[in-house]
Design a protein around this nucleic acid. Structure first.
Length: 758
DNA sequence: TAGTTTTAAGTTTTT
DNA sequence: CTTAAAACTA
């Protein structure tokens, strides 16, 4: 295989550029991989090659992906080439950070038993710091703090003003950090930021990692943020080979702190970088690729590349203008159903419908349900956002970390146990200051809320006393189960409880016990007759998920970490459950990254929807990249739809066609339906008959041919024709959507508004 | 202070 | 139109 003529089969099947990327040796490598150019294949093959041909220990390879799903897929594919390649460390940046901090966090003053706060938890914590502030404001600041951490900015950083200009932001951020430190938990941003700080502060730790990871591969590099870039730099020692793979045209997470600059400036930051371009697209036909690239070509900030469609020509993509979103759903359903009758017949699973916001899935679901078109919705995982699930998780979090104020506040008085704000404040005070109250033994100010509550017990009102006792007893019992010291009798008793929750293996016993003993299960099942059952089911599902973990503190920690970092679990399980894999995919543009479908419908191509709004340049460029990502998902057929009106916030709003539609190379697309005014080169209006340069006026003087009007349902249109009858003038309006409407001038509907002459 | 009614606000995108 | 937050009442 050394002479290049005789490669093993797994290398033989690669094209020259791909093979060059796999075989590359040197300091560092930047692979600019266009959509559908086989970049995942290159990474997995490279891992296998390093292990197999270059004798590298798989444990010395760290591969970072954007999602957990991608990490699992990659491990699987690498394993197919070489069993040992699957042993490489494949994680997301966040999951790697958590792994790092469990082992090295104590060096940075972090207890290894930390729990990860999600955005809601962070916001809740911030809420306890800021008083008399609306929740929306708290949320905004929580968002700013998250962004600050993405950009690796500390509360002291002078650049912090660029994130949020309010003058107390610095102070709030600092206090938030202090509280988080006292509690001993971390938020998402900390999972990246803290490892960097530790690696910088402790050269011996850094050296250990440099020794361990000889090769670091980063996938979807265009979506990494500044903090992640810093982490990459710290992890890479002088001997580490760093290979990043990305496509600047597919960077779609700027709103979350992703920096395209990371990829644009990678060669500057890693001197001696070689660049390999993968520009052969094996997925889409020529016109589909042309549609995608003609739009993204309008972006200024890009490296620029020439994607070649290896598959050659194919069906011309179709652009359709439709009256409204209901028609859009009908159009999709028709298209899909018709494709099934053709030769060769298409499967439902060949189809994907793309939309900008999750809310847009509803219209399609309704229509598909009615028409019995099987579908699956990707990405709407509300499971972990449900109140009962968050409650149960708060109980578990508090069990792991009794300093967790957020979890404590959430569940201590649920169901109500007579523990109000005053009592909670006293417990918090006791925990942080210790031994404040007279007549009780002074406790350590260690922040342990369970211990503090216990100490304060004799001084509380009777109702609160019994409430706290019951709560603490339930927590204690769970702790005993986890530590294996629970009485056998107690365990038996669980199974005979009548609530209806079944405890299975391992950790599920603990979950079931906790939600029952604390009354959370009862609270939710009886609270609301209709949804009570569903809520109980959800709790049951959570318990079932927990059964995969051992009934010990370690297992609980793992379980919680998995839930915080990988919320795709539920989706997978659901798909396993129903055995029909032949379904249409309903999915947001963002979620399509890394996927491909034979036939794709891009919906909602309207100004304000997609692109969302045109406030900023860079935002618009990001939307264009999102268009590019969506279009390049299609293998064989691409459809694009745009509506004249759309119901938003319960109101029907006239829509303008998306700016992107005009940017599409017109020779690569076929337009069906009437292009609205403002889209077509020849405005629809000019088609209205004109008599001798003069536009006919209706006998009552109300209307003139060519006059513009707006209809609540059909959007903008023009008066096409006027006919005089014995009932008065009849107006023929032709709308930009192609819809025609005839009405008597004196019976003008209130839904029609005249918007002047043209 | 818990639970209700009324009012206001909002729809990106996700680790 | 749906959902969350403020306001109100028992």
């Amino acid at each position: 295989m050394k002479n290049g003529a005789d490669f093993p089969p797994y290398l033989e099947t690669l094209n020259p550029e791909q093979r060059e990327a796999v075989l590359h040796q040197g300091r560092s490598l930047l692979i600019l991989a266009g959509a559908g150019s086989g970049k995942t294949r290159v990474i997995t093959t490279k891992i296998a090659y390093l292990v197999r041909e270059r004798g590298l220990d798989p444990r010395a390879i760290l591969a970072v992906t954007f999602t957990n799903k991608a990490a699992r897929e990659m491990a699987e594919r690498a394993r197919l080439i070489d069993e040992r390649a699957g042993e490489a460390m494949l994680r997301t940046f966040h999951s790697f950070g958590a792994w790092f901090l469990r082992r090295n966090g104590s060096q940075g003053g972090l207890d290894p038993g930390f729990v990860i706060y999600d955005d809601d938890d962070s916001t809740a914590l911030l809420g306890t710091i800021m008083e008399n502030v609306s929740k929306a404001e708290v949320k905004e600041i929580a968002h700013s703090i998250a962004r600050a951490k993405d950009y690796f900015l500390t509360p002291q950083d002078p650049e912090l003003d660029l994130i949020n200009y309010r003058k107390d932001f610095r102070d709030i951020y600092a206090r938030y950090e202090e509280r988080l430190r006292q509690i001993g938990n971390v938020d998402f941003g900390d999972l990246i930021k803290k490892p960097v700080e530790i690696l910088r502060a402790l050269p011996e730790v850094a050296r250990r990692f440099h020794d361990r990871f000889r090769v670091i591969l980063v996938d979807e590099y265009q979506d990494s943020n500044i903090a992640q870039f810093e982490l990459l730099k710290e992890l890479a020692g002088p001997e580490t080979y760093v290979c990043v793979v990305g496509d600047d045209d597919q960077s779609i997470y700027r709103f979350r702190g992703a920096e395209v600059k990371n990829i644009l400036e990678f060669p500057d930051r890693f001197p001696g970088t070689d660049i390999i371009r993968l520009e052969r697209n094996y997925r889409s036909t020529v016109p589909i690729l042309k549609v995608a690239s003609s739009v993204v070509d309008n972006n200024r900030d890009r490296l620029g590349k020439e994607l070649r469609a290896e598959r050659g020509n194919g069906k011309t993509p179709v652009l359709t203008f439709l009256p409204d979103q209901d028609e859009e759903a009908v159009f999709c359903a028709n298209l899909i159903e018709r494709s099934r009758g053709k030769e060769p017949p298409a499967a439902y699973s060949d189809w994907a419908i793309l939309y900008r916001t999750n809310a847009q899935s509803l219209g399609f679901e309704t229509e598909f349900l009615r028409r019995r078109v099987p579908y699956r919705v990707v990405g709407t995982l509300k499971f972990y956002e449900r109140e009962e699930i968050k409650d149960a998780l708060a109980l578990l979090s508090f069990l792991v970390n009794p300093r967790d104020e957020v979890a404590f506040r959430r569940v201590v008085n649920k169901p109500s146990r007579g523990i109000g704000a005053a009592t909670v404040d006293r417990i918090l005070g006791e925990a942080s200051l210790g031994g404040l109250a007279d007549g009780i033994e002074a406790g350590p100010p260690d922040g342990d809320l369970a211990a503090a509550a216990k100490r304060l017990l004799p001084l509380l009102p009777a109702k609160a006393q019994s409430g706290i006792k019951a709560f603490l007893a339930a927590m204690e019992k769970s702790r005993c189960i986890l530590e294996g010291t629970a009485e056998k009798k107690d365990r038996k008793e669980e199974k005979s409880q009548r609530e209806g929750l079944r405890a299975g293996e391992g950790l599920s016993l603990c979950v079931v016990q906790l939600v029952m003993d604390t009354g959370i299960a009862e609270y939710h099942s009886s609270h609301d007759e209709v949804s009570g059952n569903q809520r109980l089911n959800n709790l049951q599902e959570l318990a079932n998920a927990a059964s995969l973990y051992p009934a010990a503190m370690e297992g609980l920690l793992e379980f919680l970490e998995h839930i915080e970092l990988d919320r795709s679990l539920e989706e997978e399980r659901k798909e396993d459950k129903d055995k029909n894999p032949d379904r249409v995919t309903l999915i947001t543009y963002h979620n399509t990254k890394g996927l491909e479908f034979r036939r794709v419908i891009m919906t909602g191509l309207e100004q304000g929807v997609f692109p969302r709004d045109d406030k900023e340049w860079e935002d618009l460029e990001e939307e264009r990249r999102l268009f590019y990502v969506g279009a390049t998902r299609a293998m064989d057929e691409l459809y694009i739809s745009s509506c004249a009106v759309r119901r938003m916030y319960g109101r029907t709003t006239p829509m303008d066609p998306s700016l992107f539609l005009r940017e599409i190379d017109q020779s690569s697309i076929r337009v069906i339906g009437t292009a609205p005014y403002g889209f077509a080169k020849e405005p629809a209006l000019k088609k209205a008959p004109l008599s001798g340069g003069k536009r006919p006026l209706s006998s009552d003087g109300q209307w003139q041919v060519g006059g513009r009007l707006f209809h609540d349902d059909y959007g903008y249109g023009g008066v096409a024709e006027i006919r005089e009858t014995e009932e008065g003038p009849v107006i023929l309006a032709r709308f930009d959507t192609g819809k025609e409407l005839r009405f008597l001038s004196r019976h003008q509907s209130s839904r029609i508004t005249k918007i002047g002459e043209e």
